[in-house]
Design a protein around this nucleic acid. Structure first.
Lengths: 366, 366
DNA sequence: CCCTCCGATGGAAACGTTTCCAGCCCATGC
DNA sequence: GCATGGGCTGGAAACGTTTCCATCGGAGGG
């Protein structure tokens, strides 16, 4: 077994090649004394090669540290393999879970993953999409920017890319397949739970969305409240941009302005974080003074004191399913979005409301 | 502006091509009535093209939704561009930060990122490396598996890959460049801080490492203690595999066995999480009964009650610098590892020890 | 007017692979 | 002994791009 340095490798006619770039199929063929077609057959597994020859080729390849070039193969085969993934932010736990799922599926199907983050900027997203299309990948999965027009995605599809949306479908692009969490039923479950505990003045901390995109959760909130016969207080429905400062400001404004809210439903983990922080700042005990629940399960929800009750959304599964759909369905059929179930995880941050004045009939147990 | 469906595009001789695969440079050349060389010049920006021709070409390209193929270009140019990144786990906040840094640098230098997770399995890691080498990327950044032999990395370098290690250098591979956090000085600072508060019986929750790899933090712990004239108690130095259950078991065993420890130094966020959980389970007040500090800053450290004092390691910077080194230094020089500074973030989880019996002289102020 | 030079352009080779096709050798069957 | 056939093998084309080189037309200087 040879040791490290890259000099010292001076085979017959490979001295020059070895200095710049790696060994090619030709080098191996020459070293093994066979034709390039034979080497190709050995490595691609197709066709018949005698055992003797195969071993000679393998030995030569090992000697030269040869690895077939995905570029050559991709060009010839007209497909590079690999799938693209565009998310808003890699460090977001939800995105990370999604990436993990895509990675798991891609790996099991022998594809690699090209990742990029658009940070919510449609221009950047468009640029990324362009670059991904150039790579001639097997397909692209995207958690698109909420504010984008979707024009970039349309163009990508026109020039031959296969696209699946994950976790968010773009307003104007319902003709593209999507895998989503069933937020509607998740929020509904959570509202039912809170109302069941006796809460009537429930605040909703939502994400500001330019279009009607993220409005699903807010709409589910209103609808469920209406179904349960609880009047929605418009003043208790606030929204923030998806950033820490904005979320904090919204939560602080809300809890300071309305000291009568008994529960806060945060529509995302950033908003939940803000609610927890503000409650602590205001010396509100959770859940004695105010109950807090949020959409999205993240590691800190369990570490919190008290641990946070959440609606867990299956980030990993969404990624996995999106990838599966991308690679299996051919051609890609839009149909209607695949909805994956959410799960209410009851921990310790929700309890009966502080002043059970209004909670007369059904809740208020214990 | 055309609308969506991919049929309907029937240019002169492109009907067949449009059905399978995307437009090529030849299609554009034919459509614009120029040679392929001219089209290439327009898109690669090199060479002189008259304004009139350029516009004709651009118009034809737009009409055909043409995007140059990275495969063809890569083959011709002998480089695919793009950099590879191998981490243990995408969902780990530290890894996520590192990925984010690499992404930022790669993007600013116009490269894309191929990501994969090895989950600590050297075999899987070797497989990933092979695949990355086949892609003929501009280079590969790795946070390698602690238990690997490094043989895969050696082979990769031999067959022409450029490799930079991030956050961890492999025992036998000091000839490869690396960007690391200055864990030694980070742990030292933390120990000095704890001892300064008056702690003498400080437990060390470390990560079990097969080689001497992760031993840096433990060694720094022992050394600093020695320098400060505090005797190290071997029974207080325990280690766990990098998994939640193992970390929890180690922390629980430690805190139950030795009720006299006044501070716990967790050498990683998983271990810190375990310490927090166990302390809560055992009804130990933090920091009144026991102080807890850990290496690695993660979002929940701030959300915790009390917020956790930590040594923040610059995950993002490590990624950024590694990427920069990979793309700028040519040839790649190993030199000695680049060490990036850590920062002690004092929050609320450390205080003076419970029974100040032993803390006589210098600490115990306030 | 002719020579030169320069800007614009197209043809063709090369990059590393897969695969079709043809050729070779040997064994088998007549 | 020769034809047939099958298992192996090598040559060559093709994939989509960049780039070297040659060509061409026109402008400018002698």
């Amino acid at each position: 077994m040879e040791t490290f340095p890259r000099q010292g490798c001076s085979w017959k006619n490979r001295t020059v090649t070895s200095e710049r770039g790696s060994a090619t199929i030709k080098d191996v063929a020459a070293a093994a004394g066979v034709g390039i077609a034979t080497v190709s057959r050995v490595f691609s597994g197709t066709g018949a090669v005698s055992e003797r020859t195969r071993e000679r080729v393998l030995a030569a390849a090992r000697e030269l540290d040869y690895r077939p070039s995905a570029l050559g193969r991709g060009l010839r085969l007209r497909r590079s393999g690999g799938i693209g993934l565009v998310v808003p932010d890699v460090t977001d736990p939800f995105c990370a879970g999604l990436i993990d799922g895509v990675l798991a599926c891609a790996r099991s199907l022998g594809e690699h993953l090209v990742l990029d983050a658009a940070h919510g900027d449609p221009a950047r997203e468009a640029e990324i999409v362009d670059r991904l299309v150039e790579q001639r990948l097997a397909g692209v999965i995207a958690l698109p920017a909420a504010s984008g027009s979707g024009a970039a995605w349309r163009a990508a599809v026109r020039s031959g890319a296969r696209v699946v949306f994950a976790d968010r479908a773009l307003p104007g692009l319902h003709e593209l397949p999507a895998v989503l969490a069933d937020d509607r039923s998740g929020v509904r479950t959570l509202v039912e739970y809170l109302v069941g505990l006796g809460h009537r003045r429930i605040a909703f901390l939502g994400a500001a969305a330019p279009g009607a995109a993220a409005g699903v959760r807010e709409r589910a909130f209103r609808d469920t409240l209406a179904e349960l016969g609880v009047a929605a207080d418009e003043d208790l429905i606030v929204s923030a941009r998806p950033a820490r400062d904005s979320a904090y400001a919204a939560a602080a404004g809300l809890l300071q302005r309305r000291t009568d809210v008994t529960a806060v439903l945060a529509a995302g983990h950033l908003l939940g974080e803000a609610a927890v922080l503000v409650a602590r700042e205001l010396d509100l005990r959770v859940p004695a003074d105010v109950s807090i629940a949020m959409v999205d399960d993240v590691p800190w929800a369990e570490l919190c004191d008290p641990p946070l009750t959440v609606v867990a959304r299956p980030a990993r599964d969404i990624g996995y399913r999106a990838c599966e759909m991308l690679l299996r369905d051919r051609p890609l059929r839009a149909a209607r979005p695949v909805l994956l179930p959410t799960e209410l995880v009851i921990r310790g941050s929700c309890g009966p409301p502080r002043s059970p004045r209004t909670a007369s009939s059904r809740a208020a147990g214990r």
